[in-house]
Design a protein around this nucleic acid. Structure first.
Length: 868
RNA sequence: GCCCGAGUGGCGGAAUGGUAGACGCAGCGGAUUCAAAAUCCGCCGCCGUAAGGCGUGGGGGUUCGAGUCCCCCCUCGGGCACCA
């Protein structure tokens, strides 16, 4: 007997789509366009289930929109620069370029069997010279437009390997290879002026209606606009030229509770003191022996050093405060100096307790206002508190009121001025690494930093490099650095920094609109295809990648590479969850964990030895924990449609989904069942004279259906209900509920005793609804039931509103909010009749026990609640 | 440490403030089979013989009615600017 055979079906239809050119994106002025983009993958060499999930979701949207008549752009490329390629070269030899391109080839081969509706003619990798050369051209335009500059910034420095480390290469403050204590070191580096756009990037979030609120909130917090007071404390007997310390504070209302002034170890004053005082030098050096990440600084023990210097309080010149150098103050934020008010900031309080500094309350809670002891009193700024020493506002006022008044007061008295600051820092793009886009500038002894001429682009990475020693291969290459100054022609040296890989991914969406253009973009193409209508990717990119992309689109607009409308490049964003799996674990003789692959475990025991394994609840799939399932194996055993169906079925797309073998098998069984049902119908048709006999048959309609006993009409109603529900599910990213509705409809169809024509119609409708999710099976069914052409080209089915209306509804009856009974009533029965019926219900009569109801709530079509 | 999420049966999950547990998995019972696999049909939150009671991480609150809204707490996950 014939069976569902994905290994035959799937390649067959993939070939059919290819020869049909079904997925080629066509610029068609007569049709609306739809641009679906999933975040492009890093070419690690193997696709994983996360990719399958991500790209299947995008594919559902792309195929659905295509069926709805849109001209769809659904491209794929590779985020191909980055550290792993260099790490591989260091560990296993070989060249990052070879490693990367061979990974790309492997991953493309693994991806293609998924049957994604991708226009592969637009594929590119960010490490293609054609791509990064255009990126260099844009860098020059940005430079010209004043969007790029150089300044000093700190990096993680490994003093043994003599190399810069990424944050992820620092483990517990030590270099991952050398084990040496990492130091902070300053280098002159290239920056994009993203901070010029702080206000714009913040304000424009309000217009992103189809972005998740949580992502917008994260970006708002990241940009971090604050209103505060910038003011100076005058120094007493300060050395060198320092006579004041500028501080920025968001709580000027607590100025009277100040007990110390703190400066960053990188503050100019600290630098100056360092030169004269070995103790200061030692402390600052110690502070610099810390990683550069904010997380590390925050988690580190708060420490300070009394410089011995004193400042005067602006309100009372006899009031002196000590000046500390403190390890938790960032030079990058505000002015690199603060005043500490221990009573109303926990970090300041901890610091004050540690160094024996005074703690004086400036306000207390209205009720039982107790002075601060071990916990700083930090109420919401909107809460009213009692001020002990207000200086320009009422004794009872909110923090907000006090802050406004304090700024006004300070401005009037010449103590400082109100300013708006942002937490967002400029984007440092310099990387002291080989496998990235070279920054196209030249250092000339006479002319200084000179941009490379556009006609000399791309500045190509040299191929002859080695990774047998740490550090930047571009730096130690014998000849690559040598060049001539584009301005004066004298011998000069190339910049050896390459760009952050976030630069590569900040404009790839624009390049997909014209991937082979001789300029970064082609305005006519960008005008048609931009913006990305639906962007899909992981929540881990909520801040950096998306913020950088938003900045880049603006910068590209300013430099003439994108139209005005593309300044905000992603109209809608969806962030999908991870794919997780249980972890299987045994212990070796030393009690160390030994992880096992899912395929080596059965029934909680190792297949080989029968040793029981500990099962750790689901976690993100990772190689080190061996809780990975290779999509290639799944596709080989069950087919791509099963992998796709399962990835969509079990969890809402924004949440994590757990991969289970049982779930995958269930998906496979279901698709087999769908195939058998369709095949049964096809065989019946064969026996009844072939497809032609059913082609002309008028499908049952709402009026004429009574004659067949209602089965045809019932099936039709169910189909149209399903069309409606599945469509709603796809539109709202509720793929799992679309799948559930299709399961339900399969059951209905399997049990239906409707006519053959009606069942054929139902099965074909089902195939169409399944097509975005399981495209190969859908084509197969469509074909066997005599559908015309490819289902991928067929228009999306429309639900007939007349078939969606139900005549009667079942209403629950509650007594005091608890369901006690239900009644079946005509859909539009009026309220008072519903109330009468409800009060006559046995359960209600019993509950009332002869008394009158206190209240009856009737929500027509929903519920009746009787309060007794 | 800071910012952002998520917690519902044995499991994955469903549910415009209106019948909690749709749909699927597992489990149980039955049909088919010499037998098994596959397939098909039915049952299936917990306690209880039943009547009934209890149930959406925990504790409060708003409401005729709360998984859903508000406050506090717990646990888990993501991000923290050089991982991508």
């Amino acid at each position: 007997m014939a069976r569902y055979t994905p290994p035959e079906i799937e390649p067959k239809w993939q070939k059919a789509w290819e020869s049909d050119g079904t997925f080629l994106a066509q610029r068609d002025p007569d049709r609306p366009k739809y641009y679906v983009l999933e975040m492009f993958p890093y070419p690690s060499g193997r696709i994983h289930m996360g990719h399958v999930r991500n790209y299947t979701m995008g594919d559902v949207v792309a195929r659905y929109k295509s069926s709805c008549g849109f001209s769809v752009l659904h491209p794929m490329g590779w985020d191909a620069f980055g550290m792993p390629a260099e790490n591989a070269a260091m560990e296993r030899g070989g060249h990052p370029k070879d490693w990367t391109y061979s990974n790309i080839a492997d991953m493309r081969d693994q991806l293609k069997p998924l049957g994604l509706s991708i226009d592969w003619t637009r594929e590119f990798a960010t490490c293609d010279p054609e791509y990064y050369g255009q990126q260099q051209a844009m860098f020059l335009d940005f430079l010209d437009a004043g969007l790029v500059y150089r300044k000093n910034a700190v990096v993680n420095w490994d003093p043994v390997d003599m190399t810069v480390l990424a944050n992820e290469q620092v483990e517990d403050g030590r270099g991952w290879r050398s084990g040496a204590l990492v130091e902070r070191r300053e280098l002159t580096q290239w920056f994009f002026k993203i901070s010029d756009f702080s206000e714009d990037l913040l304000g424009a979030l309000d217009g992103l209606d189809n972005w998740p609120e949580k992502v917008k909130l994260m970006q708002r917090n990241w940009i971090g606009r604050s209103r505060g007071l910038q003011m100076a404390f005058s120094l007493i007997d300060a050395p060198h030229d320092f006579d004041r310390i500028e501080v920025y504070t968001t709580r000027p209302d607590t100025l009277r509770g100040a007990s110390f002034v703190g400066i960053s170890p990188d503050h100019p004053l600290a630098r100056a003191l360092e030169r004269d005082d070995p103790k200061v030098a030692e402390f600052c050096a110690e502070c610099r022996r810390m990683g550069t990440s904010e997380e590390e600084l925050e988690k580190a023990e708060k420490r300070g050093l009394d410089t011995g210097l004193r400042v005067r309080h602006p309100f009372d010149t006899s009031w002196e405060l000590p000046v500390y150098i403190a390890n938790f103050i960032l030079m990058d934020y505000g002015t690199g100096a603060i005043f500490g008010c221990p009573a109303h900031d926990q970090r300041d309080l901890d610091f004050a307790r540690k160094y024996g500094l005074p703690v004086s309350d400036t306000f207390v809670a209205l009720e039982n206002g107790q002075p601060v002891t071990n916990e700083a009193f930090v109420p919401p700024k909107t809460e009213k508190v009692r001020w002990l020493r207000p200086y320009a506002w009422d004794e009872i006022a909110t923090g907000e009121q006090a802050i406004d008044a304090a700024i006004r007061f300070c401005e009037e008295n010449g103590v400082g001025h109100g300013v708006t600051k942002y937490r967002l820092r400029d984007w440092g793009i310099s990387r002291q690494r080989y496998w990235g886009c070279p920054i196209p500038v030249v250092h000339c002894a006479d002319c200084g930093v000179v941009p490379e001429k556009k006609e000399n682009l791309p500045v190509l990475l040299p191929d002859d490099v080695t990774f047998d020693q740490p550090g930047n291969p571009l730096d130690r290459h014998p000849t690559w650095r040598d060049c001539t100054c584009p301005q004066c022609g004298a011998p000069a040296r190339r910049e050896t920094d390459t760009m952050d890989t976030f630069v590569d991914s900040s404009w790839y969406y624009a390049r997909f609109t014209a991937p082979h253009a001789a300029t970064p973009t082609d305005m006519a193409e960008a005008e048609y295809w931009m913006n990305v209508d639906q962007y899909i990717g992981g929540i881990e990119h909520a801040i950096l990648h998306l913020l950088y992309s938003r900045f880049f689109a603006r910068a590209m607009h300013i430099t003439g590479h994108l139209p005005e409308k593309a300044r905000e490049p992603f109209d809608a964003l969806f962030t999908q969850g991870m794919v997780t799996h249980e972890i299987y674990l045994t212990r070796d003789e030393n009690g160390r964990p030994v992880y096992h692959l899912p395929e080596d475990v059965e029934g909680g025991k190792l297949k080989t030895t029968g040793e029981p394994v500990d099962i750790i609840p689901s976690a993100k799939m990772s190689k080190s924990k061996k809780n990975v399932v290779d999509p290639v194996n799944i596709i080989e055993s069950f087919g791509a449609d099963t992998a796709r169906w399962f990835m969509l079925s079990d969890s809402p797309p924004e949440r994590d989904v757990e991969w289970t073998a049982a779930g995958a098998e269930a998906a496979y069984k279901h698709l087999g069942r769908v195939w058998r049902i369709a095949n049964g119908i096809a065989e019946e048709m064969e026996q009844g004279g072939g497809i032609a006999a059913y082609e002309s048959e008028a499908p049952a309609n709402a009026k004429g259906a009574a004659a067949d006993g209602g089965d045809d009409l019932a099936l039709r109603r169910a189909l149209h209900r399903t069309v409606h529900d599945v469509t709603m599910g796809i539109e709202s990213f509720g793929f799992n509920s679309s799948v559930a509705k299709l399961y339900a409809f399969t059951n209905t169809l399997a049990k239906s005793s409707a006519s053959l024509a009606a069942r054929r119609e139902a099965a074909m409708g089902m195939a169409q609804l399944m097509a975005p999710m399981t495209p190969h099976l859908a084509e197969e069914i469509w074909d066997m039931l005599g559908g015309q052409g490819l289902v991928a080209r067929a228009p999306w089915p429309q639900a007939d509103p007349a078939l969606l209306v139900e005549d009667t509804v079942v209403l629950p009856i509650q007594v005091n909010g608890k369901r006690r009974s239900e009644i079946e009533v005509p859909k539009d029965m009026p309220k008072d009749e519903l109330e009468k019926l409800a009060l006559a219900d046995d359960a209600v009569v019993k509950a009332l026990a002869g008394g009158a109801p206190k209240k009856v709530i009737v929500v027509p079509g929903r519920i009746v609640n009787v309060v007794v």
